[in-house]
Design a protein around this nucleic acid. Structure first.
Length: 357
DNA sequence: TCTGGGGTCCTAGGACCC
DNA sequence: TCTGGGGTCCTAGGACCC
């Protein structure tokens, strides 16, 4: 018996929640976000509206668009409902985000297509949301199948039809191939997955680097069979803030760092996690980026040492900031202490010792 | 009003240790 | 004095995903 893997993904999650909760929005172009589009309903996408686009531009492209503010409690609640439904179909559910997951339903005793159809029906009925599902033997194929299924559809890649599905696709449709990798492949004259597969692993790793080359070769030749795995614990906590263009006073930057450190550490404290490495992320007026990091001698979730470390990093980066102008400041704490198997697991928050000071 | 906010993983060089 | 591998940790940057 071959593996049966589902990739289930709620369509335009935030926008669909908004349309579910306000009947007046149904059938209309809706975007969620204040000044940047976080999600666009399919009605809005028909006008070329895309995620990441400034809302002002979305309004230009679609005069009737309705812009709604994000509503986090509704997303958390909806996500919980959807995942409870997923869990009924498999013990092996790997979340990809709030609104998508892989399910290994090999042992479910019914054809993948039937399970997927039932999953879609229940999510529509109990969560009131449109779910697209891809069914295949591997995660990568299931993921790309769900993309083909959208919106509100079901797409099955049969075992004997895998290469026929995969090889004609443009390389940029591969999961894990973004603009940079696609650009390198295009520069070599490779436009389809089949052409990339024909190149061979040695040439692909020479072109893309070891990991990326191996990965692209494995999926292009349909040899990527990583199992569905329950989620590992998180590896970092971060927060960031975009800043208006123009000079920023150091008091302003200081206040931003203090705020970011508090946001990050309060989440860490809630999850009972502590970290040792502080990363300051900067973005400049020309959209170049830089990061500065340092590692403390102890793991902490206390805002004060993290804010202090980030201020030192910022000071070290001042010449860069003065030269290029800063438009974003971010703070990430990583190198988390203890096991990361479960967020619920209570972990000791290591105290700063005399020797560390 | 071109470009938000939250993550993951990989690479490459240098320091340091055995 | 010169030389070797192998391993880990740290820093900075890049690519990608939702």
């Amino acid at each position: 018996m071959h593996p049966v893997i589902l990739h289930a993904d709620v369509d335009a999650f935030y926008a669909s929640v908004a349309q579910r909760d306000d009947a007046a929005l149904r059938g209309r172009p809706v975007i969620v976000g204040s000044w940047v589009v976080m999600a666009a309903s399919y009605e809005a996408r028909a006008y070329g509206v895309r995620g990441g686009m400034p809302t002002a531009r979305a309004r230009q492209q679609c005069r009737d668009v309705v812009v709604v503010d994000p509503c986090w409690p509704a997303y958390v609640e909806s996500s919980k409902t959807v995942f409870e439904i997923f869990e009924r179909f498999s013990d092996v559910v790997e979340p990809g985000s709030m609104e998508e997951a892989f399910l290994d339903v090999t042992d479910a005793g019914a054809p993948g297509r039937d399970i997927a159809a039932e999953l879609r029906r229940l999510v529509r009925q109990e969560a009131g949301l449109p779910l697209s599902v891809g069914v295949a033997r591997t995660k990568v194929l299931a993921k790309m199948a769900s993309r083909s299924a959208k919106p509100d559809g079901l797409y099955v890649v049969p075992p004997e039809g895998e290469i026929a599905f995969l090889h004609p696709l443009p390389v940029e449709r591969l999961w894990g191939v973004g603009p940079a990798t696609a650009g390198k492949l295009h520069a070599r004259g490779l436009r389809t997955v089949g052409q990339a597969a024909a190149l061979g692993e040695a040439d692909l790793t020479a072109l893309l680097g070891k990991a990326a080359g191996r990965y692209v070769h494995a999926i292009a030749t349909n040899r990527e069979h990583r199992p569905v795995q329950r989620r590992r614990g998180r590896r970092s906590f971060g927060a960031q803030r975009a800043l208006r263009r123009g000079p920023r006073s150091s008091a302003e930057l200081d206040a931003a760092l203090t705020d970011l450190a508090e946001r990050v550490t309060s989440r860490m404290q809630r999850k009972r996690r502590a970290g040792r490495t502080v990363i300051l992320r900067l973005r400049f007026s020309d959209y170049t980026r830089a990061s500065r990091s340092c590692t403390l001698g102890w793991a902490t979730s206390d805002a004060r040492p993290i804010a202090a470390a980030s201020r030192e990093l910022l000071n070290a980066a001042m010449p860069l900031i003065e030269q290029r102008g800063i438009t974003l400041v971010g703070l990430t704490v990583t190198n988390l202490a203890g096991s990361s198997d479960s967020e619920q697991l209570a972990l000791p928050v290591f105290e700063e010792t005399e020797a560390d000071r």
